[in-house]
Design a protein around this nucleic acid. Structure first.
Lengths: 100, 100
DNA sequence: TTTTAATATTGCAATATTACGATAATATAA
DNA sequence: TTATATTATCGTAATATTGCAATATTAAAA
């Protein structure tokens, strides 16, 4: 019914469509390392809720995780990040304003 | 609970989080004029549904409408468009990759 | 192996979104 | 004014999202 690029952009936007997930991405991006077990305190939502949000972010490939000690460590997937950045840029650039 | 910029970006992303709305924006942007009463045929959703989607897009200021004959004419609000483009650009640029 | 500390999953209630038929409102045309 | 064509709103059913308590899983430490 829609093109695949329309569906894909919408899917990504959906993940960004919650302030908690924006906050999580903001926070991870500011960290030098990636000890993420303080996200519950920082964001202020219950641990299962944070886990679910992280999972949504993971689904679109924006997070990569490696184990470090007993903590699962999340970091941002640079390649995917830049790919999505590019998608939004293309979307916002391919617009005409010759109306009204 | 979240910062206002986090809330605002999430709110905008929410509007983009549906392929029909992406498709509507894609379509309007490709038109030379703005006769929009063919959106129902183009998108393939019922007229009330299109109307609701247009309303969502309007809520974040992305559309400006003027009456032209008997048809309400939607066009993209350039200033707002570029403002949101900028918001996403800032979000995607303020990220560190020094992890994992 | 047993504890401990962390993340993941399950189940469920509350809320939000989506879509559309029916109907109302609006503005031009006859 | 009355018909016509277009968009908006209402009501409602189906589905999706969100949040969290309870519980399971996982991996390191004791």
């Amino acid at each position: 019914m829609f093109t695949s690029s329309q569906n894909e952009l919408a899917q990504v936007a959906k993940v960004l469509a919650h302030p908690a997930r924006i906050a999580i991405l903001d926070y991870i991006s500011k960290q030098q390392g990636c000890i993420c077990n303080d996200l519950v305190d920082v964001i202020g939502l219950a641990q299962p809720t944070i886990s679910q949000h992280l999972n949504e972010i993971k689904k679109i490939g924006l997070l990569k995780g490696t184990f470090e000690g007993k903590n699962l460590c999340y970091g941002i997937n640079e390649e995917r990040w830049e790919e999505l950045q590019q998608s939004f840029q293309v979307f916002f650039s391919n617009i005409n304003f010759n109306c009204c």
